[in-house]
């Protein structure tokens, strides 16, 4: 190798390094750092024993959520985004989507009032006044929505409000994959 070529190679190396750093950092630019991937994907629902929101006598466990492909929606009356999302959940209910709720760190009375006023899209709600189930699920902000398969395995987690766009982009393709081929 001639000294001149060697020299231009040496000079080119920092440029190459810079480009690599640029690509690595650039790829992170489009990401929303507040969205954390769930570590529970493809894992069964965590074990829990919790009261049913509208019937404290009744204790619920993960097995109660088995049977259908379903959504598990974490919500609270103190959460403005949940209010915004609620209409769309009602729409999903009309489309016969099974939705279970976790009433997260909320007041039972307030939650039941909310459901009677805004409509109740849930099959049932799990009462989680202390946020203990929230910790088990790795919840870090309401609303969050998990997609469960019929065996109660977590397939996807969405953080933030559900709407038609998110539904069609993130949920529908996954649900189609989970549905038994007929």
């Amino acid at each position: 190798m001639s000294p001149k070529r060697k020299r231009s190679l040496l000079l080119g190396l920092p440029l190459l390094g810079f480009l690599v750093v640029l690509v690595v950092l650039g790829s992170g630019l489009g990401r929303d750092p507040s969205l954390l991937p769930s570590v529970l994907i493809d894992r069964p629902l965590p074990e829990f024993q919790a009261q049913r929101l509208d019937d404290p006598e009744q204790w619920l466990s993960p097995a109660d959520l088995h049977g259908d492909i379903a959504l598990l929606n974490i919500w609270a009356t103190w959460c403005p985004t949940c209010y915004q999302e609620h209409t769309f959940l009602n729409t999903l209910r009309e489309r016969d989507i099974a939705i279970y709720g976790v009433n997260y760190k909320d007041d039972r009375e307030a939650a039941l009032n909310w459901l009677s006023q805004l409509g109740d899209p849930y099959r049932f709600n799990i009462d989680d006044p202390e946020g203990q189930l929230g910790i088990e699920l790795g919840v870090y902000g309401a609303p969050e929505t998990f997609l469960l398969d019929a065996q109660g395995t977590i397939r996807y987690r969405h953080v933030g409000a559900l709407d038609e766009t998110v539904w069609e982009r993130e949920f529908l393709p996954r649900i189609r994959q989970l549905e038994p081929q007929s």
Binding site: P33, G138, Y140
Partner: peptide
């Protein structure tokens, strides 16, 4: 996890409190 640049010792977030 909520206020991402704080540890749970510093954060006042409800979740930090729970943790």
């Amino acid at each position: 996890p909520t206020c991402q640049n704080q540890n749970i010792a510093e954060s006042n977030a409800a979740l930090a409190n729970d943790l």
